[in-house]
Design a protein around this nucleic acid. Structure first.
Lengths: 125, 125
DNA sequence: CATATATGATACCTTTTGGTATTATGTCAA
DNA sequence: TTGACATAATACCAAAAGGTATCATATATG
């Protein structure tokens, strides 16, 4: 039962809060767009020039990025400027950071193993 | 042109290397499974009990997690034990960490804004 | 051996996704 | 106002994703 998860300390809202961001991040074109926008704000026209797909397709990607709060858009005359919103990545980063502890554990285990090996060598085992 | 990106310093391989991980992370059920496996290794049967979908569906999720190198599987008799591989998250975390600089920038800007505000208040503006 | 158990694999269905082509809307500039 | 430009929106399509049901395979165990 999924209930198991919602009553869990991993409050499920956590799982769902980051959904928009993770969804947006799952496509390589969208990650490429985020990279581009990290260098400078851009119109759809600007962004489209960097990819081999139609503007309509780029627009869809931008919509999904906006839904995930990874970019913001503001109008300037007939242009619409797309801007990176790095804080939008926070929910995803936060979720992933939970696993740092296991990564660290593994790292500790590796270091421990090396230490033991050195010790054993010293003792001539 | 997509070429623009491949000749970019964001070597595109970076974009693609993390694809398996980002793809696996895009589904909330799969993120839930990772949470579960962070507490203990589990068979498919164990995992399935925590979700309201068939074992076949869970198996598909496990396959995708394995493809993304986020879990590993080893056989023990007729059971197959699924194990979290936290290091598999590294490629995704690394990609995201690139954006820390912008996050920090924004944070710096916010702190600066607060400082200025306080200064202005002091000066009675 | 025979049977129950644990899992894997496949065919099939529906929805979502990534894409195109086309049409519509809004704004700048002569 | 009229045409060029920048973008939005919609209809449509093929493929991928998430799911179920069913069948196949391997392994404990009486």
């Amino acid at each position: 039962m999924i209930n198991d998860i919602s009553t869990d300390r991993f409050s499920n809202s956590n799982l769902m809060q980051s959904q928009g961001a993770f969804r947006a991040l799952s496509d390589p074109t969208r990650r490429g767009i985020l990279m581009l926008l990290s260098e400078q704000d851009m119109t759809i026209g600007d962004v489209s020039e960097h990819f081999d797909i139609t503007r309509a397709a780029v627009k869809k990607h931008l919509n999904i990025l906006e839904e995930g709060a990874l970019i913001s858009v503001h109008t300037s005359g007939r242009e619409r400027i797309n801007k990176l919103e790095p804080l939008g990545l926070k929910s995803a980063v936060d979720w992933l950071n939970y696993f740092n502890q296991f990564w660290d554990e593994k790292l500790s285990a590796m270091l421990q193993a090396v230490e033991n090996e050195q010790k054993n060598q010293k003792e001539g085992k």
